[in-house]
Design a protein around this nucleic acid. Sequence first.
DNA 1: ACGATGATAATCT
DNA 2: GATTATCATCGTT
Length: 198
Amino acid sequence: MPFAPGVLERPALEVAPLLLGAVLTRGVISVRITEVEAYLGETDPGSHAFRGRTPRTVTMYGPPGHLYAYFSYGMHVCANIVCSPEGTASAVLLRAGEIVAGLDEARSRRLTSKTDADLARGPARLTKALGIELGDDGADLNRAPFDLELPARLAAWATGPRTGVSGLGGGVDYPWRFWVPGEASVSPYRRHVAKRAG
DNA sequence: ACGATGATAATCT
DNA sequence: GATTATCATCGTT
């Protein structure tokens, strides 16, 4: 069953914890999301949309429940789920997850990973394992080959500063990284931090 | 387990 | 021309 319309039509900070435990499918591969980051848009110094609408960020201003995929560091693709109403730039970056279907296919896409926990540990690894490419930017997550299943109940979560964000937006004033405590697919140095909410 | 480093190109100023 | 929401590899503890 796909997610209910309107659930994602809220600011990224509210949507982010809802996505922990969600299962995203592309084709034969499914991943259970264990780590995300919220990007609030024009008021957020860490967001691509901080300086307003540009050709790259048009998808972020689009309707919620679509994929915002962008090209990073000259060789990687990262995936966000667009949230907040159309016209507002807000999205949640998918940072890590656990492969729950299509394991063999995911392994063949990620030949450098030594263990299954490494398959989707990291935003660019996650997109590579799922097979998400730049051409998927703007895709509706309720339409094939995609599917998004939100969790029935909220998981326990921890928060902390965002990773890889330089300047103001990466500091402790923006603790907008959310993860499931103890998950093998989360970056190890903060995997067990116990500040939890909910 | 952790830190440093090179790879590599779209996007924005 | 600078910057970048990263990864894999290789070095040192």
